[in-house]
Simulated scan of single mutants.
Amino acid sequence: MSRSSLPPIEPTKTAAGIALDPRTLERVIPESKRSDGSVRKQLKIRPGFTPQEDVRLFRGTKQTQMEANALPKGHIIGWTPPPSKEAEPSKPMSKSAKKNAKRREKKAEEKEPAVKDNWEDDDDEAPATPAIPAASPSSKQTAHSADSAAPDPKADATTAEALSSKMEKLDVS
């Protein structure tokens, strides 16, 4: 006896819960347990009977063809994804092409966005000198210790003047 002739151990059920009994090959609703622990009996289904849950909607030939050719949800007609950069340089670049590519990269590095996308990115681009809080009277002591532990001893005079003018504006007595 080959394995393909045997019915499956866990038969597939229809929407109404009807399954094929593996022993008798009849259509049945298998026995199940209720929430109180009692068991429902297995119910036999008459041959040819189809419950309302299992009845499919009628689809004409044009409807089925339209559904088969339908675009996926959210698809934009005519849109194609941009080509990957790996596919572009298939042949080696000439000297002038390499030079132009370097120029483009340099130009892109020099150009900075006028409006930042995320305010939290400002923390990543902090100045070389540490920011000094001026909220409490003990902040003067921390400012002195921060100056002594500055990593760059050759600080620009203009940066120092700008920082001192900002501190004067922030200092509240």
Rank of each mutant, 00 (worst) to 15 (best):
S2D: 05
R3W: 04
S5D: 11
P7K: 09
P7Y: 12
I9N: 04
E10G: 11
T12V: 13
T12D: 12
K13P: 05
I18K: 02
L20K: 15
L20I: 15
L25I: 08
E26W: 12
E26S: 05
V28E: 01
I29E: 04
P30L: 04
E31S: 13
E31M: 11
D36M: 02
G37E: 02
S38D: 01
K41Y: 08
I45A: 02
I45E: 04
F49H: 08
F49C: 04
T50L: 15
P51I: 02
Q52N: 07
V55G: 00
L57Y: 09
L57M: 11
F58V: 01
K62L: 11
K62P: 00
T64K: 15
T64C: 02
Q65P: 00
E67N: 06
A68K: 12
A70S: 03
K73L: 08
K73G: 02
H75T: 04
I77E: 06
G78K: 03
T80R: 13
T80Y: 08
K85T: 06
A87Y: 12
E88C: 05
E88V: 10
S90N: 14
P92Y: 05
K95V: 11
S96R: 15
A97F: 06
A97W: 06
K98A: 05
K99H: 07
N100S: 13
N100E: 12
N100F: 14
R103E: 10
R104Q: 11
K106T: 08
A108N: 03
A108I: 12
E109N: 11
P113H: 15
P113I: 08
A114H: 15
A114V: 12
D117W: 15
D117I: 08
E120P: 00
E120F: 14
D123M: 07
D124A: 14
E125D: 14
E125H: 07
E125A: 03
A126K: 12
P127Q: 00
A128H: 04
T129F: 14
T129N: 05
T129L: 13
P130N: 05
I132R: 01
I132K: 03
P133F: 05
A134W: 15
A135P: 00
S136G: 03
P137D: 04
S138D: 08
S138P: 02
K140W: 12
K140M: 06
S145W: 07
S145F: 11
S145I: 03
A146V: 10
S148V: 09
S148W: 13
D152Y: 10
P153N: 02
D156M: 02
A160V: 07
E161T: 07
E168Y: 15
E168S: 10
L170E: 13
D171L: 12
